[in-house]
Amino acid sequence: MLRERYLNLIILAILVIIPLWAWVSDEPFTITLVTRAVILALAGVGLNLALGQGGLVSFGHAAYFGIGGYAMGILASHAQNYDPIIEVPFLIEGTNSMPIIWLVAVIAGALSALVIGALSLRTTGVYFIMVTLAFGQMLYYFAISWPAYGGEDGLSIYVRNQFPGVNTLDPMQFFVVCFVILCVVLFLVDRINKSPFGLALDGAHQQEERVQTVGINVYRLRLVAFVISGAITALAGALFADLNRFVSPVMFSWHFSGEIIVFIILGGVARLFGPVVGACLFILLEHILGDLSDYWHIYLGAILLFVVLFAKGGILGFLSKKEVPHAG
């Protein structure tokens, strides 16, 4: 366990050193690339709580990513047009304050995960995968056909939103904001994994009947995990929208749901830093292999196959020589 902890610290260090180096040598593109990796990692950390710890294979987490993105897009577009969102019965105006946008994104993500989770958690196994996928697709087509916020074309936001005391348009400063959020969320998720809640969630993943027999309502347990998971992924969505200053229905697409799953499998299912490693590797491959060929996903597929067949605990499991991570 100690070894994996060291590995995690090394990963965090790399995530700091690369942008610092890029900052010193004036390579803003690299900083943006790492920022992207950090945000995608955050989305993966969200899904990992449900998929890894809870064993709930959600194939529709793009829904929360998209909801977080649109929370940002809607609030910021109203703010930049000086056009209130609603006037009756009371006035709600748009905003370009990041903390408020994050809060709205987290709440919207949690509420939608509550509704979607309450329905999908009545099923298990492959049906659960399909039901979550179906909800994701519903939101995708809804976003496409909703003209008020750009429909298929999406929404452009011209200025990055504000965070008190930070120049968010500076790539390095925006990176620091995202990185700090990732660290805070990792810390919280680590605490959750080790808590009575995390123990019960993990236990229910291994042996559902056991957890019921000690008097714990497994459905409620999983629903709460699903809600936290959706909220984290929605927060990542809001940051991703801010990074690109653009939101579109693509954020809702099932390809993205699949990609987050790939991050987790690459890095190591149920491992705290699994999605972080996976997302970084994904961005790295996209950048390097994407230069060589438009069909770089073929190589990604080959690597994924290799990891699944030969490194069961993902890359982290392979490096730390420990197959099953459990709080303890």
Binding site: R191, F197, G215, L221, G328
Partner: peptide, 23 residues
Amino acid sequence: LQNVVLGAVGQSGLVFRFFRNAM
């Protein structure tokens, strides 16, 4: 021990504690 602590968690009724280390 984790299996038995899981039982104790169920008995305590305090499953929805997120930030306390169960072990």
